[in-house]
Design a protein around this nucleic acid. Structure first.
Lengths: 152, 152
DNA sequence: TTGGTTGCAAACAGTTTGCAACGGT
DNA sequence: ACCGTTGCAAACTGTTTGCAACCAA
């Protein structure tokens, strides 16, 4: 499961009437570097500040909106109401689920496509054209299970 | 797939050191009446105001927190960042998914348990103890598909 | 010069919290 | 009298917006 290259995303931006500004390039760079970390807009902003201190939070939000619209990133929102952004994989669709640990709050990404068999069934039964999905398992991660055992 | 009775929920509240106040009873009543409608705290508040005009929004939030903690309701948060609350079914677990129409915003509930086969696989592969899940399909609902065809 | 883009500050919306008043036991 | 609960207003937090300045074509 490979990530897309910076270049291919940049091309997509430009060919969509969006300008490839330094701010947008830096944002993409941070997303690629800190891959798999499910960062919120604020966390991305903090990373960006290190490389580009003059950047504003609003710009980060605007850039993330564009990237979401173009399908470059996923926007996922958990029950805490904070939106987090992940780069999409190459090949694009449906390979992206989460494990959310209720103990430590960590988000693990799992790449298996668990729903290939299920989606056609749902489409047919409910006459609903599926474009995307969000699947998150809530539970206790391996580390926290061990920690709990240790405490007993 | 049956909903729980008002009485059984009331008993659970009382046996959990929470008082069964009129505000909490009314909130439960609204949830049972407007079942399947995926209401936000604000929407529940508006319904409550009709029957109990003196109620405050903070109380609604506090009640919904309790009900979530007790497992009486599900709290689901979509990408718009607004939390919505659904009563859990009788029998309790894992029978609850959503179809979110990207066209009209409507949320449809589907009751099939699509994940029974998948969960054991995930638990084993990632050593993750699954307690709950959230599965939402994003797409175009039947009505909007028809509408679109009509426009062509 | 035009039109998209930016940074800032203010506005916004959903949610939470501090607190005095309330009410059942 | 006690203690959980309530309604209100203020505070908080993540996100959006208005706007003047900016910048590349």
């Amino acid at each position: 499961m490979k990530r897309r290259s910076l270049q291919s995303i940049q091309k997509q931006l430009q060919s969509s009437s969006y300008k490839l500004t330094p701010q947008r390039q830096m944002t993409l760079q941070v997303l690629l570097e800190k891959d798999d970390s499910h960062m919120s807009a604020e966390e991305i902003y903090i990373q960006l500040k290190k490389k580009y201190p003059s950047i504003g939070l609003a710009t980060v939000y605007r850039t993330l909106d564009i990237l979401t619209e173009l399908g470059v990133v996923y926007k996922v929102t958990f029950e805490d109401g904070i939106s987090r952004y992940d780069l999409k994989m190459e090949g694009n669709e449906h390979f992206h689920h989460h494990l959310l640990c209720l103990e430590c709050g960590r988000v693990e990404e799992i790449a298996d496509d668990l729903l290939t068999d299920i989606e056609p069934l749902v489409e047919q039964e409910f006459q609903f054209k599926i474009l995307d999905h969000r699947l998150t398992f809530h539970g206790i991660c391996h580390d926290c299970q061990l920690k709990k055992k240790g405490e007993e």
